[in-house]
Design a protein around this nucleic acid. Structure first.
Lengths: 260, 260
DNA sequence: CCGCTTAAACGTGCATAATCGTGCATCATC
DNA sequence: GATGATGCACGATTATGCACGTTTAAGCGG
């Protein structure tokens, strides 16, 4: 079935298997590909030399998220927003359709989406589409329209109109301000307009908010806070900052901790 | 069955096979086409030099969107493509509406658009929208739809449909192959389909082609060459490479020189 | 807990065959 | 006669498998 693979093809096969199963047993793979163990071990050593896997006795393991790829990806990025994003992606389930709104935090959400999941991602932010371009198991749908350089996303009437054709299971909403009384708010009219339409078609809405945004309000209202299914906050958020939302029955995820 | 293929035809065949099977084994193809392995390997090397495939020990593989699509291709021959782009932007006039198709060369066209001009730019490539985000006097309209990581642009039926609402004064068309007889061609069906629709609504079409692309044809036809208003070629292009197009009445712009 | 045994996994060196790159000759085409 | 495609010859590089001795992990009896 797998015979006569070119060297590099074998390498990608190994990487795929590492991503899906988390580990490789040299002897098993050698039997499966009808090659000598030596060859497989040479492959694993080569991949390990490039940091694409970790060589262990008997085979190889996927680079552990803690030490390897994730820290590398996180390195150049504001640590706090990355922590939010990593907590937020825990809400995504395999096979679902999610909408990722524009914004720097949400771009990190896209980056930290689990490699192994099959997803359909809809977004109005070109940067997010490009970010996800390398993921083979993610279908990317980009909403068009007038591009707003300030927010880095498409906001025009066309984008709003296209929303009507969607029904995402989960929406990561970008918010400029978040307050239990004032609701979710944005800086510009067009921005709020688009996000309002987005909220109407979404099955579940999540906002990831850094502590500065909690309790603040921008000029234009998107929706009331009670429409949110969950809010992702920083691990350091004070109790009085999040209490108003728990009172509304909104689930709170603290970054840097497992879910309650 | 396949004997007596011309060089360019063989390249097309290889590209088709790369698209459908994902890989080429040099020895197998040599036997099938009754050619020496040397010739096949020369072909693969040539295609790889253009970033159209990845040469590996024993054959070649399709470019993976992950590494190839835009980052690497833009970096591969920057000066040559940049020269093309700088010549191409000379065709743009102030106040007009232009369409910039996806592709590494066209991204450079966007970059070199004159700062002073007021323009409305329509594109299906997210990277181009972002590239132009910092220009305050350019209106950017992004076509949405399914995002194809391989070309770095939106190709789905939605994008084609949105084309109907446009009528750009000038279109920079991205081409995978350009031949006076075969016309403008693309690698994939969807790509060609979108570009075909684009050509129908455009008032004037321009293609910027590096010398390797001149005289080559990819599997899927977009339009005949006579539909082009102008072709931008490298300053080093030979006369016999461009003569067929001047015969068709197409304006030729040589990069690195002012217009004739 | 400790040392011993054993089989599996490992690294290294080497042989072999496939593949590669280069230089050169040939042939067709213009 | 110049250009470019093709095939061939040569040495260089690479992938693979096998043999060897070494290291590791795990079980076992004390």
């Amino acid at each position: 079935m797998y015979e006569d693979l070119l060297l590099k093809e074998r390498w990608t096969l190994i990487q795929e298997r590492l991503n899906s199963e988390g580990r490789i047993i040299a002897a098993d793979l050698a039997r499966e590909l009808e090659l000598s163990e030596d060859t497989i071990r040479r492959d694993l050593r080569g991949l390990a030399a490039q940091g694409l896997c970790v060589k262990v006795y008997g085979g190889a393991l996927k680079v552990s998220p803690a030490s390897g790829s994730l820290t590398e990806r996180t390195a150049s990025v504001p640590h706090r927003k990355a922590a939010l994003a990593q907590a937020a992606v825990g809400l995504v389930s395999d096979g679902s359709t999610i909408f990722i709104d524009g914004g720097s935090t949400n771009q990190l959400v896209a980056r930290f989406l689990p490699e192994a999941m099959n997803l359909r991602v809809v977004t109005n932010a070109p940067a997010i589409a490009i970010e996800l371009g390398s993921r083979t198991n993610i279908d990317i749908i980009l909403l068009g329209g007038r591009f707003d350089p300030h927010t880095g996303s498409c906001l025009g009437s066309r984008a709003v109109h296209e929303l009507g054709l969607l029904r995402p299971d989960l929406t990561f909403l970008g918010a400029c301000g978040l307050d239990a009384a004032a609701g979710v708010t944005a800086f510009s009219f067009d921005e709020a307009d688009f996000k309002r339409g987005l909220c109407q078609v979404s099955r579940a809405i999540v906002v990831a908010a850094t502590s500065e945004k909690l309790g603040t309000a921008a000029p234009f209202v998107i929706t009331q806070a009670s429409a949110l299914a969950a809010i992702v906050v920083e691990g350091s958020a004070r109790h009085d900052q999040i209490a108003p939302y728990t009172d509304l029955g909104i689930r709170i995820l603290r970054a840097g901790k497992d879910q309650p």
